[in-house]
Amino acid sequence: MKKLVIIPAYNECGSILKAVDDIKIHAPSFDYVVINDCSTDGTLDICRRHGLNHVNLSVNLGIGGAVQTGYIYACQYDYDVAVQFDGDGQHDAAFLDEMAQELVETDSDMVIGSRFIEKEGFQSSGLRRVGIRYFSALIRLLTGKRVTDPTSGMRMVNRDVMQIYAKNYPKDYPEPESVTAILRMGKKVTEIPVVMKQREEGTSSIGGLRSVYYMIKVTLAILMERLRG
């Protein structure tokens, strides 16, 4: 079984090497690809100098476009399993094998690494947790399925979902929307507990006025998924 880790990277020069090493050590059965989303801080330099397997976007596409590039790559190179993995030190590669096992054993189409099943590790700030609960409730209302961590960026998918995402993937804040899309298609989504760390480098893309835009945009996006049928 060919397995790929997709690492979207935008200005992650301080942590990208650590993330790749983490994967090489703790999840050696996985291949990886770094998607450099037109970083301005020399992330590309590091990828070249250290010979990281990378794909270099020449126009900044945002997280959605970068991750989608990874899914297209996974389809082109005939991977059976693809998993998203943040390059900023939040995610722990030690969970990847466990996720792959879950994907195969439960015959799921997607496995999400959830922070909120065993409530261990970094739990995000209070206000954000409220937002995440709200999305969780909204998705449950619209699809009848329970997803405890719909915003988790640590998600493993099989070939089927990979191909769906290669064709269609939201541009910004893509996680809740894309989960809803495949749930509406009747795909099976399961979750396993993972521990996430507080990011080591960079700041979250969500905060202040952006968070208002985030809530409205993602809510509408989820509702639109419902309308698409």
């Binding site: 990378h54 794909v55 270099n56 976007l57 126009v59 476009g65 989608q68 297209i72 790559y73």
Partner: peptide, 13 residues
């Protein structure tokens, strides 16, 4: 633009 950018990047690879 998104599709073009992705295709250019993957072709370059």
């Amino acid at each position: 633009i998104r599709t073009l950018d992705q295709m250019v990047a993957l072709n370059e690879k």
